[in-house]
Design a protein around this nucleic acid. Structure first.
Ligand SMILES: [Mn+2]
Ligand SMILES: [Mn+2]
Ligand SMILES: [Mn+2]
Ligand SMILES: [Mn+2]
Lengths: 222, 222
DNA sequence: TATAATATTTAGGCAAACCTAATTATTTAT
DNA sequence: ATAAATAATTAGGTTTGCCTAAATATTATA
């Protein structure tokens, strides 16, 4: 059994590994977990002793098979609870993260299994992020960003890179949500901002915004 | 905001105060929380500094108004989660305690309110224990023990003093549950054991058992 | 009432998880 | 290649929450 802190580190390492390949630096963990670098170094030594990570001083850290398995379980719990909060308890998608951050540490294999079954074994959380199954297998998720689409392309929003409350509330305001169909109406050349059609309305999005939106079911205009 | 450990102490003091009047002793807390007396003394000093308890060295401890309010919230969360686990997630009543022991520490006022509403604002948990409402008000619960009934009395099981897995499984085996109607068929004079009628079957219960079963809707035979 | 038994507190330690400041290793720039 | 800048680690502290052993207060008993 692991402490909450150990679990938070494992999850953070896992998430950084999804973005960056190679060893994860002390400073990136320090930033993600909002702790000082010295605290990270200390914890990495502990995780290394428990064989959850491969850690080489000065050269970063990577999950072992055992560490990855554990990280996937925490991600699974986090996302199942988020789904529960939104779909059953009337939470908005921008209010679930904090609470799921606590609930993900509840230890009870039966609880995870029964919750999953109660929810109908969902594949994606309220932010479109894939929920690992019992064996740690992740359903596939879209890799194309809105910023990569061409003029006239159609598609459907399937995920977001930034799950901050601020970004999610911005999306709410623009009527952009999971499964929202969109069409690229115009691309500004000098700053790559895009004009998008969403449910009859035209919306202007910055490159920063379009970089954080994942699109699937892409169809190019005939 | 309080630590998990502080919350566990507050709840333990609250529960001992329900049973015993007057100051709660260090040793009774030590036993209930399975920690050493020295650790209890230390924590009582901390809780006293935070004005959650009135503590007088050598003469026990009592909750302040603020401490009682906090304890009631933890009890509320514990019992709501137990209800959720049994009524929605197919847990048996003897498997919920451990998990609720963890879930009761999740901090989110919205979660408590929405969970309560989702569950239909239940008044009693799966063991018949009363669930405090939002304001800390407890619905009334039966005070008569089965051991206090007379020959020929009828009644309905409404709660249990011992929520241990062992006792609950014993009750399952005897087909005794919440809301089960019973009738006193015989009382043995020398050891106060009772023969009870439960759904056509006759069951013999020791004084230890009948002392741990609460009965309501008592009707004396005409 | 003095003494023995019991309960409680104090003293001193330890591990987890954080911190700041100082040191050392690595990387970048001249 | 050396020096400067940056990143990471080590050293030394702190708080929480637990422990054992020793000291002290309370309660029971003779
Ligand atoms: Mn967390
Ligand atoms: Mn999410
Ligand atoms: Mn608890
Ligand atoms: Mn209960």
């Amino acid at each position: 059994m692991f402490t909450q802190s150990e679990e938070n580190y494992l999850k953070a390492i896992f998430q950084l590994q999804e973005e960056i390949e190679g060893g994860i630096s002390t400073s990136s963990l320090s930033e993600k977990l909002e702790t000082k670098a010295a605290s990270v170094t200390e914890m990495l030594k502990r995780l290394s002793d428990k064989e959850l990570v491969d850690y080489q001083k000065y050269y970063g850290v990577q999950l072992t098979e055992s560490g990855r398995k554990q990280a996937l379980l925490i991600v699974r719990k986090h996302r199942l609870w988020e789904y529960f909060l939104v779909e059953r308890l009337n939470f908005n998608w921008d209010e679930v993260h904090e609470v799921a951050e606590q609930l993900e540490h509840i230890k009870s294999p039966k609880l995870v299994e029964e919750l999953d079954s109660f929810l109908g074994r969902p594949e994606y959380d309220p932010h479109g992020d894939p929920i690992p199954d019992k064996h740690g297998k992740l359903p596939k998720s879209p890799t194309k960003k809105l910023s990569q689409l061409k003029l006239g392309d159609h598609g459907i929003c399937k995920g977001f890179n930034d799950n901050s409350s601020a970004f999610l509330q911005f999306l709410d305001k623009q009527n952009i949500g999971l499964h929202t169909p969109i069409e690229v109406l115009h691309i500004e050349t000098f700053d790559e901002s895009m004009t998008i059609k969403i449910a009859q309305r035209e919306v202007l999005l910055s490159k920063t915004a379009t970089d954080n939106i994942y699109i699937d079911n892409i169809a190019t205009e005939a």
